[in-house]
Design a protein around this nucleic acid. Structure first.
Lengths: 229, 229
DNA sequence: TCAGCACATATTGTACACAATCATTGGCAA
DNA sequence: TTGCCAATGATTGTGTACAATATGTGCTGA
């Protein structure tokens, strides 16, 4: 096992995955600047690799590339937020339906373990990790459905949902209703596709309803408030 | 207007778009090698830009990047071909439904012009261009539906469908039944969402049925046949 | 005749250096 | 004091050179 001391140089995909995880855990939040030099130094790689990674993330809608300005973590507009959840409403119920019909015992176990980890993270106060696991749960369902193409789409949507939640989530009390995931697990275990589809649809509606997507039109005065305190 | 003589240097996105068009028109076909030097020379840019463009296309599933080997136009497997059309079946009927409800007269005119161009291309024997326009028709419907996120997914699926068609299309007689597009146009004009949804669903089923997705298991003997002639 | 191996070639991976461009800051004038 | 303009600093865009790696070729041996 000595070969493990040699740290294989991270590839562009690996760095993109690391950054994606950081977004999922809200360690990097919308609006943050991702300077090529900083990212490169953080991972110990050159700018060329970082540039490739940023291109991947831009293609997934996680960062926006501004010419001669740099890369910034995307800040989804209210409109984009709605679009993301409309797309999820189109894809995920059908995917859950398929997953319920294909789920094998090993898959059920994996999902159960997933939920357990989510609970544990919440208990430990690791809100970011819990949120990440919550998203992974949806991805896991897509994987069980065995539809690679749709799974990749859902991956993108989960990532962008993390950004949406970072911007528009209402209460600071995390408390991601994981009982919805429990109910989904039950439906998948019993192979009830219609039930799984309905549960997923309701789950997404719930999530959407937790967002504050009203048009603020006045986010700038926050500066005055910040200085007034 | 003299500023137009100065050819602005193509950006990575522009080159990716040009290559995507070439794929749509079957000018470059699955399996082709896209050497960085060749592509760079073709567009008059350096390898760095080409590399970014190839990364974009890889993210869209149009090319596969093999380490230290190069970039190749993706060759969708039978499984991937099915997945692409399953995803389209999930997204496009609902999108057509929404488009029927939002379509404005200008949109209808644009679609009609699109169909006319498609007919003209077919009449001129420009099969590649006709196929490209046929795909653009679907993208146009997504644009009318005004769902940017879903539109980007459909864009990817159209591109990958071009690859699928290039590999698995049955008869050489192109004859993309554009009467299906005509019927869709009528449904959109009359604002009948359910009809548009059904037509789109049937259209996709028709397309899928035109593919030969049987498991050949013997594509290699073609070499012998090729040499035998 | 064929298997195995070393070498040559071509292509990609990466680092570096310079040019181009933008944001900020400071100064100047009204 | 305020608006405008120029200089500066920093960051990205791009071309070039070198290193790493895979493929194909030719040789050697049995």
């Amino acid at each position: 096992m000595l070969s493990h001391v040699i740290a294989d140089p991270p590839t562009a995909e690996r760095i993109a995955a690391r950054l994606t995880d950081a977004v999922h855990e809200h360690r990097i939040v919308p609006g943050m600047k991702l300077a090529e030099d900083e990212v490169g130094e953080a991972f110990g790689v050159g700018r060329a690799i970082v540039r490739q990674a940023l291109r991947i993330l831009a293609q997934e809608g996680l960062v926006t590339l501004e010419r001669n300005r740099g890369a910034f973590v995307a800040q989804p507009s209210i409109r984009e937020a709605r679009e993301v959840f409309e797309a999820r409403a189109l894809l995920e119920p059908a995917t859950a339906h398929a997953a319920a019909q294909r789920a094998r015992p090993a898959d059920i176990d994996a999902l159960a373990a997933h939920i357990a980890a989510e609970h544990a993270a919440l208990a430990n106060g690791e809100a970011g990790r819990a949120l990440n696991l919550s998203g992974q749960f949806h991805i896991e369902i897509a994987r069980i459905a065995d539809q690679g193409t749709i799974e990749s789409f859902i991956r993108q949507l989960i990532s962008r949902s993390s950004l949406v939640i970072a911007v528009y989530w209402r209460r600071r009390s995390a408390l991601c209703e994981s009982h919805a995931h429990h109910a989904l697990l039950d439906a998948l275990r019993s192979g009830d596709g219609d039930e799984a589809s309905d549960l997923m649809k309701g789950h997404l509606v719930d999530l959407l309803s937790q967002l504050d997507l009203r048009d603020h039109t006045a986010p700038q005065p926050s500066l005055r408030e910040a200085l007034a305190e």
